[in-house]
């Protein structure tokens, strides 16, 4: 865009004087750094990062929170979240988180994992961490694809879905079925709160944030494992525009991965 036009538009804005406190609808949480996100335009990762850090700021728990991000598109989460973080090997985030929470039981530990990470290479760690009821929050970004390695089939890839390693669509007869691991962990007595959310529209974003808030509160009360699946997108590897990808989430992903709580603590049900 022409620089001069940009400037005059900015000036108009300021002259109209809408930048006043009562008009504030959003500010970047202080718990996010100023580093530019490396995520592709329209990717859900950035939204979930923001939600997590908003909750950390609002609950004033920056000095209590320790995050673990394993290999996956979000491996650089520590560049954006202004909290202490550990980067974990592919699939091992919940084991690393177990190591942390066992020696620092007063802290609030969360993992941030993709579907390949959590439901393929790290399945054993996921199940056993939930089964031990480790007092951590597991944030599970389900984009039905291996984002970071550029679009291979994930355990959550839907039947018929085309990826670089299922070029004719996922054939469940030879490639297995989408693994609904969130349903699995909801069965385990160690999990306290299990829910599936999305960030494809404003309403869902607000609900997802509520879920994150709740989870951190449960961790403060040492209730056990909290597990939040976020049905997300990967516009780049889905070969869609951001808008198309959010439509795909709404029309295809969510019917296969229905949103809502899978396990609600008794206190919450009242």
């Amino acid at each position: 865009m022409d620089e001069t036009i940009l400037k005059t538009e900015e000036q108009d804005f300021i002259e109209e004087d809408i930048c006043v406190a009562e008009n504030l609808v959003y500010h970047k949480p202080k718990t996010l750094t100023d580093t530019d996100l490396h995520y592709c335009p329209g990717c859900g990762h950035g939204v979930v990062h923001r939600l997590l850090m908003e909750v950390v700021e609002e609950m004033n728990i920056q000095d209590k929170v320790i995050g673990v991000a394993p290999v996956g598109c979000a491996v650089f989460a520590y560049n954006y979240m202004d909290i202490d973080m550990q980067e974990a090997a592919h699939g091992r985030a919940t084991a690393v988180a177990t190591g942390i929470i066992r020696v620092l039981p007063d802290k609030l530990v969360f993992t941030y994992q993709g579907d390949g990470d959590l439901a393929a290479i790290g399945t054993a760690e996921t199940i056993h961490t939930c089964n031990r009821g480790e007092n951590i929050l597991i944030v599970f970004i389900n984009n039905a694809v291996y984002g970071m390695t550029s679009g291979q089939m994930a355990p959550t890839t839907l039947p018929g879905m085309v990826t670089t390693t299922s070029p004719f669509g996922r054939d469940v007869k030879t490639m297995g079925y989408p693994l609904k691991i969130t349903d699995l962990v909801a069965q385990l007595p160690g999990t306290y709160y299990v829910t599936r959310q999305a960030v494809n529209n404003a309403g869902n974003v607000r609900k997802a944030k509520k879920a994150i808030q709740k989870a951190f509160q449960f961790l403060q009360q040492r209730k056990g494992t909290c597990f939040i699946e976020i049905v997300s997108n990967c516009p780049s590897n889905w070969k869609m525009t951001p808008v198309e990808s959010n439509k795909f989430v709404e029309e295809v992903m969510i019917p296969n991965y229905p949103l809502g709580d899978l396990k609600v603590p008794k206190e919450e049900q009242k």
Binding site: A88, A95, V96, T98, G99, I100, V103, E125
Partner: peptide, 25 residues
């Protein structure tokens, strides 16, 4: 703290977490 892990893969990564948290593991 003493914990029987689900595998050696898990136990070495638990060490990573605990040592990264500044503890003797």
């Amino acid at each position: 703290i003493v914990l029987q892990a689900e595998s050696e893969v898990a136990s070495i990564n638990m060490i990573y977490g605990a040592a990264g948290a500044g503890k003797r593991a």
